[in-house]
Simulated scan of single mutants.
Amino acid sequence: MRAIVLRIMALFGAVALSCGAWVLARYSLPPAEYALIAPLLPQQDGQSVCLTGSFTSQVMNVEDWSKAKMEPTKHLSPDGKPYMRPVPPVMKDKSVRAFTLQLVYDTRTSDYDWIYNFRLAADVEGVGTMFAAGECPWYAKDKVWGWDKRQITGNTTDLYCYIDCDGGGFSLDRAPATPALLMSFDPTIGLKMKGGCGGGGIYRIKPATSGVTFRLQTASAETCRPLEEWASR
């Protein structure tokens, strides 16, 4: 009887070990080729890629910072008066008709493996065309960097683009097995954008909730010409 029990225990142990090895192997495998973002990014100096998407049922909230008003906060200054902060009016659930994105290869070097400059145009109901520009550093490999020995974890499936000084940003994830990227925004920070012709205002666009994505397909270079013209002004 004891021998049978020992055999059963050994069998369960072997099964558990096998399952553990399978799980470890599965989660240590690199992303599949169709999930990699690199094939959709410019590869060398002078290159750029253009992506665009049109939408019929996607909405975002739009803060109009050109019309912000100062309002008191709950915090008091040393003289007993409340600190003030600017509060913009918010246009809720505005239809996003289109996004056009250009990523331009940059030769700067730092802790990242590559860096791209982005130009983004948004066509939004009630506002019209808005523009934004910033950068997208890409950390493709694990590394230790700097005097403080920072641990940097590489990422081969997505890219984060942002504007310095709290201008916000957005994430780009590869849509598996397609020449498309999924763009998403943080609902708290959003992205700061400028109005179109004549510099008509400063806005910040934000999704009403997290998890909202916009699918952008690769497009011809001609599609991004308006972005280049805007950037050259």
Rank of each mutant, 00 (worst) to 15 (best):
M1D: 10
V5L: 07
L6R: 14
L11Q: 03
F12K: 03
W22L: 07
W22F: 14
P30F: 11
P30K: 09
P30A: 14
Q43R: 11
D45R: 13
S48W: 10
V49W: 00
V49M: 06
L51F: 14
G53I: 02
S54Y: 07
E63R: 02
D64H: 14
S66A: 13
K67D: 05
M70E: 14
M70R: 13
P72R: 07
L76I: 13
D79V: 05
V87E: 08
D93K: 13
S95C: 02
R97H: 15
W114Q: 15
I115E: 02
Y116H: 03
V124K: 10
V124C: 10
E125K: 06
G134D: 07
E135I: 07
P137I: 02
P137K: 00
P137T: 01
K143T: 12
W145N: 06
K149M: 06
I152A: 05
T156H: 06
D158K: 09
Y162E: 09
D166N: 08
S171P: 05
P176L: 01
T188D: 00
L191R: 03
M193Q: 09
R204W: 03
I205F: 13
L216W: 09
Q217V: 04
A221M: 10
L227Y: 04
E228I: 08
E228N: 12
S232F: 02
